[in-house]
Structure formats: structure tokens, C-alpha cells
Design a binder for these strands. Sequence first.
DNA 1: CTGATCTTGCACACCGATGTGCAAGATCGG
DNA 2: CCGATCTTGCACATCGGTGTGCAAGATCAG
Lengths: 213, 213
Amino acid sequence: MTTAARARAPRRDAASNREALLEAARTILNRDPEASLDTIAVTAGLTRRAVYGHFPSRNTLLAELADRGAARVAAAVDSARAEDPVLDIALLGRLVWDEVEHVRAMTRVVVHGPLRERIGPVLGPIHERLVTDAEHAARLGSGRDDLPAELVARLIEGAAFTVLDESARADLSRTEGRRLVILAGLGALGLSWREAHALLEANRTLLDAEAHP
Amino acid sequence: MTTAARARAPRRDAASNREALLEAARTILNRDPEASLDTIAVTAGLTRRAVYGHFPSRNTLLAELADRGAARVAAAVDSARAEDPVLDIALLGRLVWDEVEHVRAMTRVVVHGPLRERIGPVLGPIHERLVTDAEHAARLGSGRDDLPAELVARLIEGAAFTVLDESARADLSRTEGRRLVILAGLGALGLSWREAHALLEANRTLLDAEAHP
DNA sequence: CTGATCTTGCACACCGATGTGCAAGATCGG
DNA sequence: CCGATCTTGCACATCGGTGTGCAAGATCAG
């Protein structure tokens, strides 16, 4: 950058160790979101002291982890969109679910903790899309009209988190999680369970392995 | 108890200070569940050191707080029961809501934190009642049949916590909270929003000031 | 092989929290 | 008023965590 360029390229295990730290943090924090830096370092095969050779502080590590996750979710969310608002909410559930189900226990902490503001640029648009869908569905008569769309969107988000908790507790399969997060979301939107069930039957791709309608 | 009886009755401010500590803990912990013992003591008009004259440890204080809340919830829950399972779930929502809405932020921490086992005897029966209602409703065709009753019960509980979070965020009124917790619960059970709405219209006492059907 | 780069192991300072000991003081009961 | 009871203020120990400094060693690039 400035005057003195590096005399030599960095050792190649520097990058791999850095990745190992992020990977270990992902694993450990998903088990215990309050885990100490030492636990993370040891899991990565390093010492706590060595961490500070890669990250200036604990928070920096966590921030980078959150950034990566947020980027993946953002890309997934932008990859597809449905015209019908009810279908779009189901689709949104599936897209987000696929990106967060492998960090189930961590998700709530990241979204509701101090890192929330950091991933705000990702969360905001998702929330707005839910609000738009909710009021669109209400106008069409397919979604509830007895609560403000803003509130409906929050109920749907809350339902998704409940499924996240439950799936971490009961160790649900990926497909079961998809189904559950969609059913719970549509229930919050005001659909009867038969309607939600029928929608899933009519759109089997929502549960399929790789679907980008 | 044993040989040496107290020479004199305890000072009357001992009891009142003890109550002040519990009251302060309720207030402070509801704002910040991680609040320090010092904050609680000062709020009660005492010193941190004085707390140990009433409680042997921080945890003891919290435990007594949880016990009192649990006792109130247990009494409320046992005060009424409806024949129809759907109506019973709505009723249950209202009964519990009225007892916990004044400690909104604290509820999730107590139920999901280390004090959970302490209030287990209260939580257990409520959960069982929800499960029974859910499978009963499924048999009648009024509740969802596409998920195990155990899971449906958890979704209903999760919906209630979502409403709790939202009500703390948006400072909803007591009545709005009642309505919301019932609607969210019935949505998780699989009712359409029109059905849920109709049920509330047919049972206005669910939202009334003092109803014991 | 040489030397830069990375890791380690120790040390330390710092922070915020809980829990105790003890003496002096304030407060209330009889 | 006397004395038991409660509160205070201080010091201290303990614990677990983060962040740094420094020297010695391991590791890898060239």
C-alpha cells in the first residue's frame, strides 16, 4: 500500500489457519454462542495468542463470520422471487432456511445480538419484502387483514425463529425444516393448515433439493 | 426451630427491604436480564453488600423471583378450562398472558435460561395441556393434522414468545397483547385468520377485563 | 540454507462480576 | 435509652474473560 512492500509472500498456512479459525468459530459458537476465544482457537488447532495474529480482536472475528453469512443469505434471497405474495413468502422461507439451517443455534444470537446492526443491510430488505407480500396478500384476500402488515411480517419472522429453535432441539432434517418453516410462516400469515398444505402440494419444488423457480 | 429462639423480633424494615430487592430485581432484570447485583441493590435503595443479608447468593434471589412468578401462572392456568380444544388454547393464551405481560422481557430468559428446571413443574402441565388440546383439535378436524401434536404445541408456545417480544418492542396494550397472543396461537394451530377472528368475536370475554368462563 | 513469517508459552495488566470478613454506624423494638 | 438488628464501607480473594509484550521456537518461501 504505502512505501514498504512485503519482502516476501506470506506463509501459505497463514491463510489456511485463518480459515480454520473462522470454521472453528462457526462450529463452536453454534454450540455455545458465549464460547470463549480460547475454545475457538484450540478447536482450530491454535492457541488463543495466535488468534491475535489474524484478528485484532474477538469481535472482529465474529463480525467477519456474520458478514460472510449475511452475504450468502443476501445472494440466496435475491436469486428468486414469486409473483403471488403467498407463494413468495413460502419461497422466501425456503431460500433463507437453506442458508441458515447449518448454523441454527447461532442465527438467533446473531440477529438479535449486537451484531444485528452489522447485518442490517441484509435483514432490512428481507423484512421489507415480507411486509410488501403481507399487505399484497391482504389486498388479495389470501392473507390476514386483521393485523397491520408490519406486524404480520414480524410474526412470520418469529415463526421462522421458532422453527429454527425446534429444529436445533429435535435435529430435524433439511427437508423437514423447509416444510416446517413454510407451514409456520403461512400459518402466521393467516392461511389455514389445509390451504398451506395444498400450496405445498401444488409447488413441490419448494421442498425439492435444488429449486430456483 | 432449634434451641435458641430469637431474643427479639426482626426489624420491620428487614422484610420491606427484602421485598424492595425482589421488586427492584423484577424491574431491572426485565430491562436487562444480565443486570448486575449492584444495579439491583442500588435500585432498591441498598448496597450490594446488604443484599447478602437477605439472600445467600445472586441465584437465590433470582430463584425466589422465578418461584413467585411460576406460582402465579400456575394458579391462573388452573383457574379455568374449556371443553372445546381450540377454545381452550385461546383461553390458555389469555390466562398466561395476563400473568406474564408485566414481565415481558424477562419471560423468555427465565423459561429458556438455567432457571427453567426450577419452574419445570409449572411449565410441564401447560405443555401437556397444549399437546392434548392440539391432538384433540386434530381429531375434530378443527386443528392441523399435518404435524405431530407435540410439535404443534411447541409452535404455539413459540408464537406466544414472539408476541411477547413484539409487545415489549412496540409497547402494546394489555388488551392488544391478549388479542395478538390468541391470534398467533390459533394460526400456529392451523386455523385461518377468518376462523380465528370469528372465534374471538363469538367469545368476547376472552378479551374482557376480568373473564373466568 | 537463510530469513521472514507464523506460532507458542510465558508474563502481565485490566475489566467486571460474585462472594466474604470485619468494624463502625444507622435504625428500629421493647 | 439499650441493645439487637440491619446497613454501610472498606478491603480482599476469586473467577473468567480479553488484549499485549516479548523471546524462543517451528515452519515455510525463495
